[in-house]
């Protein structure tokens, strides 16, 4: 289907961009890489009158070393992230997760900011207008029913980006700006857990930077992604594990899951299981159980919820053991 006509605005300065965002607040979408926005606009999931092209905003591009850690401009491509020597050395988990996104062609376009802000996905939502008409519009777009949890009023569309679980494990913060102010929040606080209104971002706000704290540097880790194909696919369930070790023991273990809930989630209670008197295998299993219980997949994708939850269990165990073996 064609995209509804819109006006493309291409400011060169961040301040102009933020002013534009404020001016057309609620009737404008931000175009970064466009790899998700444009297909969605063709499906008439978004029909804004204005599209803000942020490609020329130099201030929000690139990877910079700072005293506190690393600052990544929101408009930095995933390709740049997976090829950054600094990130490879200090935050290998993020690089590993970025590498699994879609395909090389898409990573050339797609940005880290776009990945953090990626719209939640549901098999009943990411469909054409005529498809959605035929089954009834849902809570997330145009309607008031949920096909996934009939009778429910909450939207369960799954947050399906690859880098946020890694960023959560690395305790990343993000900078959000509007025309008059700037705020900094932990990524964890950015997501609401609701499938429809999935992020805490006002219509006039823009995610401008992502910060990786120095404290999380040199964490080992692993990212395990369930996908049917070796390329292209969004995650259907995935887990990121970040681990800091001290004298062979686990000093700090963080685990986050994605694609099984309306938000990427840090698995709570992991640290309490660490270094207890049990085999590493057993510990990994208990942590995996915790992760599986955190996952609440529903029928938002082609694979069954039970399978996706089981995979969270399997992958968590594997990722923990792999991180431990490094």
């Amino acid at each position: 289907m064609t995209v509804k006509p819109f006006q493309l605005l291409c400011p060169r300065e961040l301040s102009d961009a933020l002013a534009t965002l404020e001016k057309h607040s609620g009737n404008i979408r931000v175009l970064a890489g466009g790899t998700d926005l444009l297909p969605s606009m063709r499906q008439r999931l978004f029909e804004p009158e204005y599209v803000l092209d942020i490609r020329q905003l130099r201030e929000i591009q690139g990877i910079r070393l700072t005293e506190q850690g690393i600052e990544i401009g929101a408009f930095t491509t995933l390709h740049a992230i997976e090829n950054s020597d600094e990130l490879k050395r200090s935050y290998p988990l993020l690089v590993e997760a970025a590498k699994t996104v879609a395909s090389p062609v898409i990573r050339n376009m797609a940005t880290i900011g776009g990945n953090v802000c990626l719209d939640t996905r549901c098999l009943w939502y990411n469909q054409s207008l005529s498809w959605r008409k035929s089954c009834g519009f849902c809570i997330k777009k145009d309607g008031n029913i949920c096909h996934v949890a009939p009778g429910g009023t909450k939207c369960w569309a799954a947050f399906s980006a690859d880098t946020p679980p890694a960023l959560l494990c690395l305790q990343a913060e993000i900078e959000i700006r509007n025309a008059s102010s700037s705020r900094r929040v932990t990524l964890e606080k950015f997501y609401t857990g609701e499938g429809d209104n999935y992020r805490r971002l006002q219509p006039d706000e823009l995610v401008t930077h992502i910060f990786l704290p120095r404290g999380s540097a040199l964490y080992g880790g692993a990212y395990r992604k369930l996908r049917i194909r070796g390329s292209i696919d969004y995650p259907l369930a995935a887990v990121a594990v970040a681990l800091k070790r001290k004298n062979g023991d686990f000093e700090d273990l963080r685990i986050a899951i994605t694609a099984v809930n309306p938000a990427p989630l840090l698995v709570a209670g992991v640290q309490s299981l660490v270094n207890r008197a049990m085999t590493r295998e057993r510990m990994a299993e208990e942590i995996a159980e915790l992760a599986a219980r955190t996952a609440k997949p529903l029928t938002t994708s082609a694979l069954t919820p039970e399978y996706r939850r089981e995979i969270i269990r399997v992958f968590t165990k594997r990722a923990v053991l792999e991180a431990a073996a490094d």
């Binding site: 008439r44 029909e47 098999l123 009943w124 959605r132 008409k133 035929s134 089954c135 009834g136 519009f137 145009d142 309607g143 008031n144 029913i145 096909h147 996934v148 009939p150 529903l298 029928t299 082609a302 069954t304 919820p305």
Partner: peptide
Amino acid sequence: HGGALCFKQKGPERHELDAS
């Protein structure tokens, strides 16, 4: 596939606030 369609209940009417 899991989930439910609701052909007849809350039919394919658009949300009243939807612009289109």
